[in-house]
């Protein structure tokens, strides 16, 4: 059972790392600020979600698991709201230019 859990952790955390990498590649390759925002929010959110999912079987108790999920939810919330603010700022700047 332990081996199964550990394998799941390795797989999920590695997959999460791939999405973080993809998000960063998008940040470097995408042509404009708004496209880069897509890369940052969507790929990194999924990356963090997979890292959290992978770490759940390693949690020493339900409270630790709950903490991991809460951190993910807070990151989602912050990501979504900051994205909105940055997108509006970019739009304002484009209108002024």
């Amino acid at each position: 059972m332990r081996v199964l859990f550990d394998s799941f952790t390795v797989l999920a955390v590695s997959a999460g790392a791939v999405f973080f990498l993809a998000g960063t590649v998008g940040l470097l390759r995408f042509p404009d600020s708004l496209s880069r925002l897509h890369a940052l929010t969507k790929a990194d959110n999924l990356g963090l979600g997979l890292v959290v999912l992978g770490l759940l079987p390693q949690a020493t108790g339900p409270l630790v698991a709950l903490k991991l999920i809460t951190v993910w939810l807070l990151a989602q919330l912050a990501g979504a709201i900051v994205t909105q603010l940055v997108a509006r700022a970019v739009r304002r700047e484009n209108q002024e230019a």
Binding site: F19, V25, G26, A39, K42, A43, L46, G47
Partner: peptide, 14 residues
């Protein structure tokens, strides 16, 4: 939706 969004962006970026 989060999985679809992440996979979509990752595919395009890579």
């Amino acid at each position: 939706q989060a999985v679809m969004a992440g996979v979509d962006v990752a595919r395009r970026a890579l």
